[in-house]
Simulated scan of single mutants.
Amino acid sequence: MIRTPLVPFAILGAIIALGGTPASAQSSCGPREQLVKMLADQYKEDPVGMGLAQPGQVIEVFASSNGSWTMVMTMPDGKACLIAAGDNWEIVTKIKGNPI
């Protein structure tokens, strides 16, 4: 499946529009629960990593077995924004003594 990085933004925009969010809202952001459901349903992406950014902000990477991936930033209020997406995701592990 070929996927451009903008497809998740378009899908999330449609979810937001159907949910009655004001037109002034960013189309790449919405409730985290809806974003996570969309990534699982449409792209079969599940969380593979996470970390803290600015105070209260969580960065998560979702990836699928076919290599698609999406990076999501969630704010303390539960609003989540897509910040990057792509293909060819690989899990890289560093083995002690072997530099990556």
Rank of each mutant, 00 (worst) to 15 (best):
Q34R: 14
I15K: 13
P31W: 04
E60K: 02
S28W: 11
M50P: 00
M50C: 02
R3M: 08
A63Q: 05
G86L: 04
N66H: 09
D87N: 15
P55E: 10
G30L: 00
Q57D: 08
M71G: 02
I11T: 14
S28F: 11
E45S: 10
N66Y: 05
Q57N: 11
Y43W: 05
G67S: 05
D87Q: 15
I16E: 08
V36G: 01
R3T: 04
S24C: 06
F9P: 01
P47D: 08
I2C: 14
A80G: 09
M73W: 06
G78R: 12
C81L: 13
E60V: 00
G67D: 10
M38F: 00
I16W: 04
A63L: 05
K94Q: 10
M71Q: 14
L12W: 02
I2E: 13
N88A: 10
G13T: 04
S27V: 05
G30C: 01
P31T: 07
E60L: 01
A53Q: 08
M71W: 02
P5C: 06
V92T: 12
L52W: 07
N66K: 08
D41V: 01
V48E: 14
L82N: 12
F9T: 08
S68H: 11
N66P: 00
V92P: 04
T21P: 02
V58I: 12
S64L: 02
I83T: 14
Q54Y: 08
M1Q: 15
M75I: 02
N88M: 05
L6C: 03
L52R: 14
P31N: 12
I100Q: 11
G56F: 01
G78M: 05
Q34G: 07
T70G: 09
S68E: 13
F62I: 00
N66M: 06
A84C: 10
N88I: 00
N88F: 04
N66I: 06
D46N: 07
A85Y: 03
I2L: 14
P8I: 03
E45W: 03
Q34E: 05
E90M: 05
G51F: 03
G19V: 00
G13D: 07
G97M: 12
T21E: 09
P8D: 13
G86H: 08
D41S: 13
F9K: 12
G86W: 04
K37H: 11
N88S: 09
R32Y: 02
M1C: 08
G78C: 02
V48Y: 11
P22R: 11
Q57F: 02
M38Q: 03
L12H: 10
I2A: 15
D77F: 02
V58D: 07
K94S: 06
A25S: 14
P76S: 09
A80M: 04
I83M: 15
T4M: 13
W89M: 12
D46K: 04
M1F: 08
R32L: 04
L52Y: 05
T21R: 08
Q54I: 01
P55D: 07
T70V: 12
Q26G: 10
G19N: 06
S27A: 07
A25I: 01
W69D: 13
P31E: 09
I16L: 06
I91W: 14
P76E: 12
K94D: 04
M71P: 03
G67F: 01
T74D: 07
G67L: 00
V48L: 09
G30H: 00
T93N: 13
